[in-house]
């Protein structure tokens, strides 16, 4: 059913800390690994070992340079996957009912046996979160690792999305963003978590924590500076003669 639910019981989602992300792409690899071997059609690659490789990924890490009005430029690594929007345009455009948002946890999923691969949901997504798999002909997207988070066969520590479990920097957090008392909600409140493209009206559940301001070195007293004044002595001997001679020419 491609009508969106009025509200969802929980709003499961990710909080991504742009201050902490080191851009190692480990989340990209673990996502591809887990989601190729488990839920749904595998994430295929085309020409993987050839001259023009390309493939399906549910999570990609971009890197951006931000140049403030004054001060140094900053490099910010930027992981991006499905934001599990409350007002998800990808769900309502689907003609077959393959694309849906779950009432119990707000996760946006694709029923692959109903997907006709028309691509319209990917057209409607401003974030580039959906990719049509070239081998399978169906739309792939982040499932929040729906086959991990409720999986009682896994140790409890592993019942989080693969990207969150893998991140070596602790830049990715998973939880219920609909519950104001959850750890992720507190984190968002404390760090001014933000929405991507709020003007699109999609109301993303996933939040991004902006990088913390950089330290500045102005007004610092450098006690070593007087001792490190450059020593510029006049050259002597042959070099002195050469210097004087060349000056005269």
């Amino acid at each position: 059913m491609t009508q969106l639910p009025q509200s969802t019981e929980r709003k499961m989602g990710l909080v991504i800390d742009l201050d902490t992300c080191v851009g190692c792409h480990a989340c990209v690899i673990s996502c591809k690994g887990w989601n190729t071997e488990n839920y749904g059609a595998p994430l295929s690659d085309q020409d993987a070992y050839g001259g023009n490789p390309s493939g399906t990924f549910l999570n990609r890490v971009h890197s951006y340079e931000v140049q403030p009005a004054d001060g140094h430029a900053q490099l910010i690594h930027f992981p991006k996957s499905c934001l599990h929007c409350e007002d998800a345009p990808c769900v309502t455009v689907c003609p077959t009912g393959a694309s849906y948002k779950r009432v119990e946890d707000g996760i946006v999923l694709v029923n692959e046996s109903d997907c006709i691969g028309c691509g319209l949901c990917a057209w409607s997504c401003p974030y580039g979160a959906r990719e049509l798999d070239m081998a399978e002909g169906v739309m792939k997207k982040c499932t929040l690792c729906v086959d991990r988070i409720y999986n009682e066969n896994l140790p409890e520590v592993d019942r989080v999305p693969s990207c969150v479990r893998t991140c070596p920097a602790g830049a990715r957090h998973f939880g219920d963003l609909g519950d104001p008392d959850s750890d992720v909600s507190k984190l968002v409140a404390e760090r001014d978590g933000m929405d991507l493209m709020p003007e699109m009206g999609t109301k993303p559940v996933n939040k991004y924590l902006p990088p913390r301001p950089k330290d500045t070195v102005e007004d610092q007293i450098d006690i070593l500076a007087p001792l490190l004044a450059p020593v510029a002595e006049e050259p002597k001997g042959f070099l002195g003669w050469l210097d004087k001679t060349l000056e005269k020419i």
Binding site: L18, S63, Y64, E65, V66, Q67, A69, I76, M194, D195
Partner: peptide, 12 residues
């Protein structure tokens, strides 16, 4: 990216 408030953003 939500980073526009901090300065000019460029895809690096």
């Amino acid at each position: 990216t939500g980073l526009g408030v901090r300065g000019d953003v460029r895809a690096f």
